[in-house]
Design a protein around this nucleic acid. Structure first.
Ligand code: MN
Ligand code: MN
Ligand code: ZN
Ligand code: ZN
Lengths: 138, 138
DNA sequence: GAATCAAATGCAACAATGTTGCATTTAAGA
DNA sequence: TCTTAAATGCAACATTGTTGCATTTGATTC
């Protein structure tokens, strides 16, 4: 398993490598695409509901996972890439939700697209796209 | 007031011009920027909570209002432009949230920016930007 | 203006989501 | 093994969102 990898990641972020945190990371990792909250709750039903919320929050604020999509009160989470830190999530990718298979995926862009708003100071840009994924198209 | 304007809009969408619907449209309109759900509830406290949800849903699905932003379980609603129909929301604009004044606004783009994902069929694109608005920058 | 009728509303009851305080447990370092 | 701050579980609560059903209301026809 990648348990060792996750322990390292947690250590790097000064977070204790607890059973719950490792369990959550394994779960998201095994899910392949971004994992909806309801699935997390099902898979991790051994841990307290409150703890799940707090675990998600902590890992999110330390740049280990990120919220990939939110729709109809269903939130999807994905593991961050190497570039994310406790200071900032560094996401140069967009999020795609397939209306057929419902999968949410992180998609890299060929060229980083620049958003500009005159007189505004831009901090974060989130791009959410929906449509039909490659698998479901055939 | 613009009550007449709203009555026309509702008629065009085959929606009854009820007190609740007019009230909601007046409220959003008076709020200037996109209006958070919690504010809607405060302003429209005379109407049943369930009715507020159903009113929002109906007006949303008929292209009268649209969800402009969602963050931390706070959803912002704005009135649609002319181009929206009951079939499709036609939004060539992005949504901006100011981290200082918390206002959410609809911002038009100079040039419509194209998102492309090879092998994917793109239906909808939502772009949410946060930062500091012009007013709060000075 | 009164009658009609589908659409809209209010109410009750419920389910899911998210939050806070506090006592207990646990992982990491010494 | 000991120590300690961080993490957890539990209870209690607040908010958000949903469904069914009886009643009301707004648009249309007469
Ligand atoms: Mn992502
Ligand atoms: Mn908008
Ligand atoms: Zn798909
Ligand atoms: Zn501002």
């Amino acid at each position: 398993m990648e348990t060792m990898k996750f322990k390292e990641i947690l250590k790097k972020r000064n977070l204790k490598a607890t059973q719950n945190r490792l369990g959550l990371l394994e779960a998201i990792s095994a899910f392949k695409t971004a994992m909806p909250y309801s699935e997390l709750q099902k898979t991790l039903n051994y841990m307290d509901r409150v703890t799940l919320y707090r675990t998600i929050d902590k890992l999110k604020e330390q740049g280990v996972i990120h919220k990939a999509f939110q729709e109809n009160n269903e939130t999807f989470y994905a593991i961050c890439g190497e570039k994310c830190s406790s200071d900032t999530h560094h996401h140069d990718h967009i999020h795609f939700k397939c209306i057929k298979c419902k999968a949410v995926t992180c998609e890299n862009m060929d060229k980083a697209l620049k958003i500009s708003l005159p007189d505004y100071e831009i901090h974060k840009v989130a791009i959410n796209v929906s449509g039909v994924c490659g698998v479901c198209l055939v």
